[in-house]
Amino acid sequence: MSDQTYLSLENLSLAYGKTTAVKDLNLTIRKGELLALLGPSGCGKTTTMRAIAGLMNPVGGKIVLDGRDITHVPANKREIGLVFQSYALFPHLTVFENVAFGLRMKGVQGNELRQKVEAGLKSVGLLSFAERKATDLSGGQQQRVSLARSMVVQPKLLMLDEPLSNLDARLRLDMRSELQRLQKETGMTMIFVTHDQVEALALADKIVVMRNGAIEQIGTPEDIYNRPATDFVADFVGFENIFKLRDGKLIADGKEFALGAECPNAPGLAWRPGMVTLGEGPFSGTVLGVSFAGNIRGYVLDTPLGPIRAEVDAARPAYTLGEQVAFDLPVASAAPLHRVG
């Protein structure tokens, strides 16, 4: 991984007709980095990828790859790989010919072609399927063919659209480690799209959280998980108790609540359920719901602050429905938000 910017998007704006899908996106990626575009469905992840690949013309802004402005370079000259969410294999061709397609376009022939295709198929464990019809394979296998097809041409950048979301739970874990391995082995710069924060946190070197066509936060998985910048990101990564802050007091239900300690100067604070202290503290609430989840027990409390979600060690004695419980929102563990709403 070098320190130099490899891909940069500068004020990139994208639209479908008159509807804006992405506005003023700014983003940089270094060589060899594995970047995740994370966000709920419809936030513009696929659109952004299509624009980087050249399948869509930006209405504004610039795309620079490896020091060259490629904003107006046609898609077939960009040398960027894209693994479609639908895999988009060529139904009339065998697995071998699918993988060979891009190499043939580059004029690779004969023995060299065979070797490269076979190496590609081997790296995804599908060498023995070379002569099958591509669309006769299972979903997971099709995806690996699609991956091999994109990788054998050694693109400058490889993008994957929701590579894990069409797979069942087992395959998803396999594919996750496979992607990680391939990226390590090839040192390829990769962008992958996901709406699943767990996947993004597990795989990426850097995460870009998107919302409504704009970037909400960019950071390492640790940044995103521990230091969400906005209430949207906080909610997305599991901070279920989020409050506005004014003059050092929590705002809930239009009322102000003083916290036990000195508040940081931030517009909001957020707590994961596990950060809420139960059994002592300045606040109190009624137990509305209890759920047992193995080593922890989750509670929903009805409080003057609104519903509070808490999780405690399941070994502790359980509170029962309707019971009054004292609780605290410790300022020390809270994540300060830079923007709320």
Binding site: N76, G81, F84, A88, H92, G102
Partner: peptide
């Protein structure tokens, strides 16, 4: 019955638009 994205896949792999028509649309 033919997905439109296979043409885009062909283009990304280096084929021109017209080439993609002959290489992946017509055969299918």
């Amino acid at each position: 019955n033919l997905r439109a994205d296979i043409e885009e896949a062909a283009v990304i792999l280096g084929s021109s638009r017209l080439g993609a028509f002959f290489r992946v649309v017509l055969p299918n």
